[in-house]
Amino acid sequence: MSILVNKKTRVLVQGITGREGSFHTGQMLEFGTKIVGGVTPGKGGQEVHGVKVYNNVKEAVAATQANATIVFVPAPFCKAAIFEAADAGLPLIVALTEGIPTQDMIDAVNYVKERRLRLIGPNCPGITTPYEAKLGFMPNNIFKKGEVGVISRSGTLTYEIIYELTQVGIGQSTCIGIGGDPILGSTFVELLPDFNADPQTKTVVMLGEIGGSDEEVAAEYIATKMKKPVIAFISGRTAPEGKRMGHAGAIISGSFGTAQSKVSALTAAGVPIAETTNAIPEMVKHVLQRS
């Protein structure tokens, strides 16, 4: 088992003929992902890495029975692409693009939610279930199959921690990058229940950062409902107030969204906090030995 995606997931790539879409389709296929079709308006009938391209999502879904899609579309067109995927009823939509206007995302997130579908991202590296499926652009060679769920607001920092876990022989069940934007399709608290219910996952590593209150909200869920141990790390302890630290969502506003507030909330919820990234593998090992 795993969460959200596995080797049976039938994946579409929206924006498959673009430079990024095409390159990463190749990478995802190499990883073993079952990519059943691509979409680019006006380019129906073409092929990318042997994957058939359709003119629109509806047509692609009808032809392929896809049940998930990856949106590789430039920021100005993402809202329309997500709406199109939702209209076709795709239960899982993964949006990778950085730089989507906030109001577009508010519209898209609520549109998807009203249809009881799921959106991951945007501005995220996607989802990977090792040796089964990769929806996004995490590097192919860092994973090992195992029992640790990884969920994060960051990209490279996440790869680094996955890589370090793999190096010491600790495998992962599913790894999710939820994204670095202020408005996200799925926040920590909306995905922790999936890990909670997944028999393969024994523990979860949660990588948070400054900005917003998603970590504080997650802390409440962990304290009251989470049956599995969670280990957390928060980056941006030295970030100044009022400055956007790369990610649009990584900004402290006044006294709101500080690393300290997140660390306090998680500590109060009984979540051990890794003070530094290289402490994480040891902490995970310790937890797995006890379970």
Binding site: E209, I210, G236, A239, M245
Partner: peptide
């Protein structure tokens, strides 16, 4: 990567 750079600062 923003997360990695922030961690490096820390």
């Amino acid at each position: 990567g923003a997360g990695l750079v922030m961690s490096t600062m820390d």
